[in-house]
């Protein structure tokens, strides 16, 4: 069983929901990425979603765009990020790591090379925002061959045929984008998300995570009533943006801890 499947199985036994914090690798500094990952796990994160920065992050709002720009200013590329995951794995063999980013850095490295090196580094899942299932058949074969779970997004605009396409291609979990908009938007409608998740479960047997627009413990708690996982991105990235390099890891740890506490209360 993959690390992601194991993680969800264990949480189910404990009657808990997964907390998935996101941040961009290399932000604010490459040397802080691995300590940040460990701190998140210590604070109660179940899965780490590690952003791969891209120069043109079309689906992201200004907070994560700026985070990408900071990481790129630090010259962090996909190769460096795989090395960071490898380093993280030296002290943590249990917590799943999902890379989230855009297609072109993977295209530039090549599918086979990426999948081989990601598996060797200890990556568990790959979410590529601009690879809908229709456009990544060859890439999916590579991921499957190397035991990497392809994670896909579903949106409020996804009709049944699209949900079915994602259900066929996805492994690990499915990430439901809880609003029409970019990351970090604020107009989240809980009732609508709840109703939609119930519909999605008719077609999808994998765990369902929810993200985009979840900003605090109370909202995470509310979401975790009907989702299997809660993804928090822009709020964490905002914390990183506002902290000094000396305090950033501690501040993120305490933020993740407060969300964990709210979710488990």
């Amino acid at each position: 069983m993959s690390r992601i499947a194991t993680c969800f199985a264990q949480l189910k036994q404990q009657n808990k929901k997964a907390l998935i914090p996101f941040f961009t690798a290399g932000d604010p500094a490459p040397a802080l990425t691995v300590p940040m990952m460990h701190a998140m796990v210590a604070a109660g994160a179940d899965i780490i979603e590690l952003g791969v920065p891209f120069s043109d992050p079309m689906a992201d709002g200004p907070t994560i765009q700026r985070s990408s720009e900071r990481a790129l200013a630090n010259h962090v590329g996909l190769k460096d990020i795989l090395a960071m995951v490898k380093q993280f794995r030296q002290d943590n063999s249990a917590t799943p790591v999902v890379l989230m980013g855009y297609a072109n850095p993977i295209e530039a490295m090549g599918y086979e090379k990426f999948a081989t090196q990601a598996q060797a580094a200890g990556v568990d899942g790959v979410l590529t925002v601009d690879y809908p299932p229709e456009e990544c058949t060859a890439f999916l074969e590579c991921l499957t061959k190397h035991d990497l779970d392809p994670i896909f997004l579903l949106a409020p605009t996804s009709v049944n045929a699209r949900v079915a396409a994602v259900a066929r291609a996805a492994r690990g979990f499915v990430y439901y984008v809880s609003l029409k908009g970019v990351t970090g938007s604020a107009n989240l409608d809980l009732t609508a998300v709840q109703a939609r998740l119930a519909e999605l479960r008719q077609q999808i047997s994998l765990p369902l995570g929810v993200g985009f627009g979840i900003r605090d413990g109370a909202m995470a708690k509310a979401m975790s009533q009907f989702a299997d996982a809660v993804v928090i991105g822009s709020r964490i990235v905002q914390e990183i943006e506002n902290a000094s390099p000396e305090t950033v890891v501690a501040r993120v740890e305490s933020l993740v801890k407060s969300i964990r506490t709210a979710m488990d209360s």
């Binding site: 079309m58 925002v129 601009d130 409020p156 605009t157 996804s158 984008v177 029409k180």
Partner: peptide
């Protein structure tokens, strides 16, 4: 090659 929200 777009995010899921735009596919439909």
């Amino acid at each position: 090659f777009v995010a899921e929200t735009l596919m439909q």
